[in-house]
Amino acid sequence: MTAGAVRQWRVPIAVPGAKWAVAVVLLVATVTVAGDLTGALLGLVVAAGLGLSGVRDVVVPVRLQADDEGLTVVSGLVGRRRRYPWAAIERVRVDDRRRLLGRSTLLEIDVDSDLYFLGRHELGATPAEVAEELTSLRTGR
């Protein structure tokens, strides 16, 4: 990467599309199958959450941005941007472990009292690839 260049990692467009498709299926299933009010409300809340999550993915697609001076991480429901110089970054690593529902690989960025976790569906690349590129930017190699 050339000096002064900015690298961005963003949510692939297929991710919000998949969220919206599942939300619609869940909405239709809830309306047609729900046998009680509690089940119907739960289905509607989950469908709405998925739909809003898809909107966030479209409105704030860039989740991580880096350059020679530092990185910017987007977090929270409204897409709050936090800029950190490389000197403030304590650690960047790949967290790869087996979890209850299978294997999970996340990019972990540790900054002061903040800890960020970003997955492949938020980055549009594997966490290992992003960690390697961030290390290269940080060290200038």
Rank of each mutant, 00 (worst) to 15 (best):
R103V: 01
G49A: 13
G43C: 09
V55A: 06
E133H: 12
D112Q: 14
S113E: 15
P16F: 10
P16G: 12
V58T: 14
L26Q: 05
R80Y: 10
E129M: 05
T32P: 02
R81S: 13
G54L: 09
G4N: 06
P12Y: 01
R10M: 06
R93N: 09
L100F: 15
V55C: 00
E108Y: 01
S104R: 14
V45T: 13
A18R: 12
G43V: 05
R93M: 07
R98Q: 15
P61K: 09
A66G: 04
G51P: 06
S136K: 13
F117V: 09
R98P: 04
Q65D: 03
A3S: 14
L41N: 10
G43A: 07
V22W: 06
L27R: 02
V74I: 10
A125R: 04
A87C: 02
A3R: 15
T135Y: 08
R80W: 12
S136I: 08
A18D: 03
G124L: 00
W20F: 14
V78G: 04
E108F: 01
G70K: 10
V60E: 08
A23H: 02
S104I: 07
R98W: 12
D67P: 08
E132V: 00
V46P: 02
T72K: 09
W9Y: 10
F117Q: 15
S113N: 11
L77P: 12
L115I: 09
V111K: 03
T30V: 06
R98D: 15
G102D: 09
R83S: 11
G70D: 08
K19S: 07
R56D: 00
R7G: 00
L115K: 13
E108M: 06
V130Y: 01
E133R: 13
R138S: 02
R7H: 12
L100G: 00
D96L: 13
V31C: 06
G17K: 06
Y116M: 04
D67W: 05
G39S: 14
V62Q: 06
A5W: 02
A128R: 14
G79F: 13
T30E: 04
V6A: 08
P85M: 06
T135S: 15
A128S: 13
A40G: 13
A40Q: 11
P16L: 09
T2H: 13
A14V: 14
A18I: 15
K19T: 00
L71D: 00
